[in-house]
Structure formats: C-alpha cells, structure tokens
Amino acid sequence: MEKFVNTGNKDTRSGFGAGLTELGRTDERVVALCADLTGSLKMNTFAKEHPDRFFQCGIAEADMIDVAAGLSLSGKIPFAGSFANFVTSRVYDQIRQGICYAGTNVKIAASHAGITLGEDGATHQVMEDIGMMRMLPHMTVINPCDYNQTKAATIAAAAWQGPVYLRFGRPSVPNFTPENQKFEIGKALRMTEGRDVSIFATGHLVWEALLAAEELEKKGISAEVIDIHTIKPLDTEAVLASAAKTGAVVTAEEHLIAGGLGELIAGVLSRNTPCPVEIVAVDDLFGQSGTPAALMKQYGLDSEHIVSAALKAVSRKR
C-alpha cells in the first residue's frame, strides 16, 4: 500500500494564506476582503504587500460578500474571507443572489470550518456549510485536506471562472501531500489503491482515512482511499469506478450527515450501482467547546471510527 509521510503539522488556513500571497505577487486582478479576522485567515502578508487591493470590511459580512461581487464585475478576482460560519449561514442570501445567481467570479475563503474550530464552541463551529453551499446552482465547493493542497487549491480557485467556496480549517494537522502539487478542480485523487472497500474522504478526514487504511491492512482488508477535495462538481466517474471495484463504501467528513459528502455519494451510488455505504459524519448535532483533537474523537471523526465503518460496510456486502 502507498505510504504517506507527514512532513510536519501545519494548519490549512496557512496554506490558504501562502496561496493568496503568491497570487498577490503574480496576478494583479486578485483582491482580498476580510471581516475583522485578517490574522486568523492568514491574509496579513497580502494586506501588507498590497494595501490598495485589500479591503477591510469590519464585522459586516453581508456587505463584504456584495462588495466582493461588485469588485468582480470589472474583472477583479476577489477572495472574501472569514470564519466558515460567518461566510455561509450568516450571508446565505448575499451569496445566493450576489454570487451564485449573479454568476460573479468571487472566491469565498472559509476558515475554521467544522468542529475543529474547537474551544469557541458551537456558535462558531459550522458543520452545515458544505450542504448549504453545494445546494446553490453555479457554486463550486472545495475542501482540501492539508497545507500543501490548500495552497494549491487557492491558486487553482483564482484560475477557475465562477463562484468558489473554499473550505479550510484552524488546527495544525499532518501535511502529507506534495509541495507545489497541481490541483485539478473536480478531479478526485486516489491516495491508495484497494480491493475491498472504498473510503471517500474530504478535508481533515483524508489523513484519518489513510491511518484507517493502514489499520485495515493489518486486518487483511484492502482499502482504497480517495481524496474528494472537490465536493462540487463531484468526480462521479471516479466514485462509481472505485465503488464498482470494491463493492463497499465509507465516506468521511467533518460535517453533518445532512447535506454532506456521504449523502451526496450515497445518492450517486443509489442512482447508478447501489452498494453498502457507511457515513462517518456528525448526526444532527451541534458541537461544543473542546480541543480539536478531543472533539474529533468525541464526535466520531477519526481513524478508529472509519475502521469500524469499513468493517461494517464490508460485512454488508452480499
């Protein structure tokens, strides 16, 4: 089985910051907006290097989204950033009308997504955002898995024509994908090749899925781990091909079951080639305060739960 090496823990938001910094230096069309969380979003370097292209919006996210839409008309490529909760549920209608229906070329930079926002608690932890964003026509939804991939995804988002929701996180997590990788929006990445079960994971759960695959290998089960960094448009071809080969599926995401990757993939499979699907996600609950690691364990978002889900999916095969 392919082995992945953690080259040192890093936060994915810093990957976004690095990508934005590079874009700032290479593409004059790129502008950035933030709602009083510039440091948290790692947008400081861009703001410092390009004060004319950085717009502090204050704690006024609705305004920020539509200002970004207005800026895009003249050909600018705006990245509008805040915590994921505050650039989704708080401003859903602004995104719907000003970005998606308008088809404006705005990139929403959503940091501190999911439960690993941690100690601030449920008011700040959004686990519904993937569902909300993927329901919107014209929206592209990207949830990269580590620092290197987030940096690459940021650069790819700028080159993509149309609205993008770019989701990343707060905590330091393993960095294991290649530096300066090519990031292809809408193309799933097969991390390990396997025969018995397919594990479709996104975001922070990709690393956990790789750990789970190692555990499963010890139990004699060959797992195929696929990084679904682009949730919309979903690489249905890759999903169907892997599921057809293994006949059992596990999905893993830092999100509610409702509206998430698991439901999405289960839907695709049920309409094409039905097979057992086990979903590793949070079932209809708000989060709570705690360290990111403690919360992942508490809410069942770790390799241990992926292993259990895989065993169950395999056992359900006819």
Partner: peptide, 30 residues
C-alpha cells in the same frame, strides 16, 4: 441569468445593491 443587456447585477432581495455599487466603484478606482 438570461443575458439582458444593461443589467449588471440581479436584485430583488433587498439591501444588497449599495454594497455591490461600492465594489463596482472600487473596481473603477483600481
């Protein structure tokens, strides 16, 4: 959505156009 000339942005859900106009004006400034 249907390419009507002269329309820069959709509107109808209220309160959003002033922000859009700010962005458009900043674009012209840049």
């Amino acid at each position: 959505e249907f390419g009507l000339p002269g329309v820069y942005m959709p509107s109808g859900s209220l309160g959003q156009g002033l922000s859009v106009a700010c962005g458009a004006a900043l674009g012209k400034r840049l």
